[in-house]
Amino acid sequence: MSLRTVQWALAASLLAGVGGCARPEGALAPVLAAPGAGAKVEMLAATTRAPSDRPGVVFGGERGDGLAFADIVVSVPPNRQVGSIQWPRRGPADPARTFAVTSLSDVPRAGVRSWLKKEARGRRRALIFVHGFNTRFDAAVFRFAQLIHDSNAGLVPILFSWPSRGRVLDYVYDRESTNFSRSDLVELMNTVAASPEVDEVVIMAHSMGAWLTVEALRQEALRRGRIPAKITDVILASPDLDVDVFERQVAEMGPKRPHITIFVSRNDRALGLARLIAGRVTRVGAVDLTDAAYRDRLDAAAGVVVVDLTGLSSGDPLNHSKFATSPAVVQVLGEQLLRRQPGDDSSNRAADVAQTLGAALGSAVAAPILVFSGGQN
């Protein structure tokens, strides 16, 4: 099968999954919000995208000249289901009914440390989120705001957005854009970790963003001999990563690497087609934990917990975004992964995750969801 044929198959699958829900541009145009119209999430967005002059777009899908920063406040509407995003229709967003931007301002490069000093005071923990393939800037902003709001984890939100064109046929362009952005993500990680107001950094990456994240961590480990100690946890949701490459990347990070939690699903349709594009090599986000060969390989990786969500249904028809769309998984993120404090005992992490899933779903529903932990550090 030719690459072009597979790309069209990927496009057909993704388009079938989203059911024609193409969204108009301009959702990030700031609007005024009445008091009490919605909860507020303020984030720092760091991006390697080129700026856009289209109203409400802010950053497009092409590659920029370097890191740019913005302070963005998102209003999350009341009376909504956990895991959902209410998109504005054409025209100004309505904070009472939809996600809306109520404030957006540039942050100069020299002002990032001041932003961290202001926002981290009293919280001391930061979350860097790296989005995945086929993601416009507005989609990255709203998804991250939804995740921060629904998990109620209390971390300082920092979005790293790389140049994705947000089109299903641009898989290769998006993949190269992650490589283009790797050193910039390293710079952001080091800047956040170096802040005296930040005690701990958690990095969460989805889909193709996991490749970028793991490569950035590996690059820093090889360059400096270790990853900054403040980076304690890495969460990979549906990672679009070659399983053989990932095994080597983890080894090259060295023994003093962050704890890694991976959400996988054997019925992830997007990763199934990514596997075809990648020469039929299994993606980490679609490994089969019932296969002894994969379990043996994972068992050799200390400090890695894998949560198999194959048995969990959610509102995502592609089974590719359960980490954010499933209320049960959002609860696990909030209670067991994002709220952990420095010094917390992580030796029972797999049991903690399984217990929270069981409480959220009920034991009968949670039973098909496997949680596996590799050897301990």
Rank of each mutant, 00 (worst) to 15 (best):
D345R: 12
M43I: 08
V74M: 04
A45S: 08
L370Q: 12
F144C: 04
F372V: 15
A16Q: 07
L185A: 05
D316L: 13
I235V: 15
L309K: 02
I128T: 10
E25R: 02
L241M: 14
R97A: 15
E187C: 09
G375I: 09
S105K: 15
L185S: 03
T261H: 02
A301N: 10
A37P: 03
A22H: 03
L271N: 02
G132R: 00
Q86T: 11
D288V: 12
R182L: 12
D291C: 09
A328D: 02
L3M: 06
R248E: 01
G61E: 06
F142E: 00
I369H: 09
V130H: 01
S314I: 14
A11E: 07
L104W: 13
V58A: 07
S195E: 13
A16L: 14
P35G: 03
P95F: 11
Q336N: 06
L273G: 01
P317C: 12
Q249D: 08
V168G: 01
R113G: 14
F99I: 08
L273P: 05
V198P: 06
L116D: 05
R89C: 08
N190Y: 06
A293P: 09
L318V: 03
R182H: 07
S183C: 01
G279R: 04
L159R: 06
I72D: 01
Q331A: 15
A292K: 05
I227N: 02
T261S: 09
L338R: 01
G111D: 11
L338K: 03
R167I: 11
L127F: 07
A12G: 10
